[in-house]
Simulated scan of single mutants.
Amino acid sequence: MIGAIMRRKADLPAKTCPTCSRPFRWRRKWARCWEEVRYCSERCRREAHRSARAGRQA
């Protein structure tokens, strides 16, 4: 890790998941698409789509 900048987790940007309302922090895999990231996990993303679909059918 020569040349890598070490950061504390508290210094990373954070967002709140609209499905579970929990805060989540930036991850390296989201470096290129952080602006588009809305959910903390695949499970929350699926739940949001499932509940939206159920709301339309009712």
Rank of each mutant, 00 (worst) to 15 (best):
P23F: 00
Y39Q: 02
I2F: 06
M1R: 04
A58G: 11
S41P: 03
R53K: 15
R50E: 07
R25L: 06
G55W: 03
I2L: 08
S41F: 07
H49E: 09
E42K: 11
P18S: 05
P18K: 08
R53G: 01
A10V: 11
E36D: 14
A48V: 01
R46V: 14
A10I: 11
G55K: 13
E47L: 14
G3T: 06
V37H: 01
A58H: 09
L12H: 02
R8K: 12
P13T: 07
R53S: 14
Y39E: 04
A58Q: 13
P23A: 07
R43S: 12
R56T: 10
A52S: 13
K15M: 03
A54Q: 14
T19D: 06
R32Y: 07
P18H: 07
R38L: 13
R8A: 08
R53C: 09
C44E: 03
E36G: 02
E35H: 13
M1F: 03
R46C: 02
P23D: 10
W34D: 05
T19Y: 04
V37T: 02
A10Q: 09
W26T: 01
R27H: 06
G55E: 11
W26K: 07
E47Y: 03
M6G: 05
D11Q: 12
A31K: 15
E36V: 02
C33V: 14
R50Q: 11
A52D: 09
E35G: 09
C20D: 06
K15V: 07
A54D: 08
G3I: 06
P23N: 06
C17F: 08
A54R: 15
E47F: 03
R25S: 13
E35S: 15
R28D: 10
R28W: 09
A48L: 00
Q57T: 12
R46G: 00
M6C: 06
E42A: 10
I2W: 01
R56E: 11
A48P: 01
C33T: 14
